[in-house]
Nucleic acid binder design. Structure first.
Lengths: 189, 189
DNA sequence: GGCGCTAGTCTAGACCCCCTAGGTAAAAAC
DNA sequence: GTTTTTACCTAGGGGGTCTAGACTAGCGCC
């Protein structure tokens, strides 16, 4: 009956590792409890619900991604910044598939506000400073960039590109070239 | 003890409607059985597993989306075709959120081959014929388009754009303008 | 029209997951 | 050293997945 020393942080981290190993959808309270050699009821002292656990993992992933992106952006501007940011994003998704899946969880409004989502948006806008876009073009460009990164990576993860010989690395690099060209040459209204 | 006349097709359709109503993650074999006034064990005569049911819904959604896209493309070329295709895709996702979520399910290799995924790829290439891109630029462009559509729509669905006043419709339309401009002016290697 | 076959549904039950209520022991506070 | 709080436990209900085996409706056939 020794105490295990569980905390929300330890549980969240273990759940994140589990997600990367067996997939986010297989992260359950029971499995997590087994991992700590503890009854599942015990975890409810630290967690509100199974959904709460998933939200915690999602927020961890968002934080980690924002941290990585911030590092990548430091001291860069223009296309350099764009490429570094995009690569940080993609690398994280490929290295941590379970965490990345968690980050796609639908968060309710307040949770989303409290998450690192705002930092992501700010960094994207920081990148765009190198391209001198006025509003509302800037907002449109933010959405385009977010959408493109997320879409490309999630299709790549899903294996959507595997039936063509061209490597996804090469396509990715050219996609970034194309986005850079597009931002430098944003079409007039 | 009258026969209900269940078939895989009827079950799949009902599950798809259920997905749009209550969310894809809440589509369960039990709930589906209740909807037909039948015990859940009965459904396992028609379905291999709960996962099988979800795969069926995913393939239905992929077929429907491909049909819609094909209609939209008929008789169009160039930017017209691009816009019609993109709108068909987005409209489907917004009108059928549960089905769209199902379409994001990770399919294993053979299932994916047997799905409408190939038709999607062919149609995307058909659009690009209006822009005269040579390989491998064409492959890169296919990936960019797929990624962008999917990413934009899934972020929109997730509410990722709601904190800015600009309407997502306007951004979407400008995104399509931007993609058209990009394809007409694909950056040289 | 009875006979057998197959398809479609049922009952029963095992197992896993989520979560609550209430008990109890370890650690911390005093 | 007692009290309080914290952390974990047992017990148990509810729901989802799935299997084995029983039963019956309807068909094809002599």
């Amino acid at each position: 009956m020794a105490r295990t020393g569980l905390t929300v942080e330890r549980l969240t981290l273990a759940a994140a590792e589990m997600a990367d190993e067996v997939g986010f959808e297989n992260v359950t309270v029971s499995a997590l409890a087994r991992r700590f050699g503890v009854k599942d009821a015990s975890l409810y002292f630290h967690l509100k619900s199974a959904h709460d656990l998933r939200v915690q993992v999602a927020m961890l992933a968002l934080r980690e991604m924002a941290d990585g992106a911030a590092d990548a952006l430091a001291g860069r501007a223009g296309k350099d910044a764009l490429v570094a940011f995009a690569n940080a994003y993609r690398d994280y998704a490929l290295r941590h598939p379970g965490r990345y899946a968690a980050a796609q969880l639908q968060l309710d409004r307040e949770t989303a506000e409290a998450s690192a989502a705002r930092r992501h948006a700010e960094m994207t806008r920081a990148i765009l400073r190198g391209y001198q876009l006025a509003e509302p073009d800037q907002t449109d460009a933010v959405r385009l960039l977010h959408g493109t990164f997320h879409g490309y990576v999630s299709l790549e993860r899903a294996g959507g590109f595997r039936h063509t010989p061209r490597t996804t690395d090469a396509s990715w690099s050219r996609t970034l070239d194309a986005l850079d060209a597009l931002l430098r040459n944003w079409p007039p209204q």
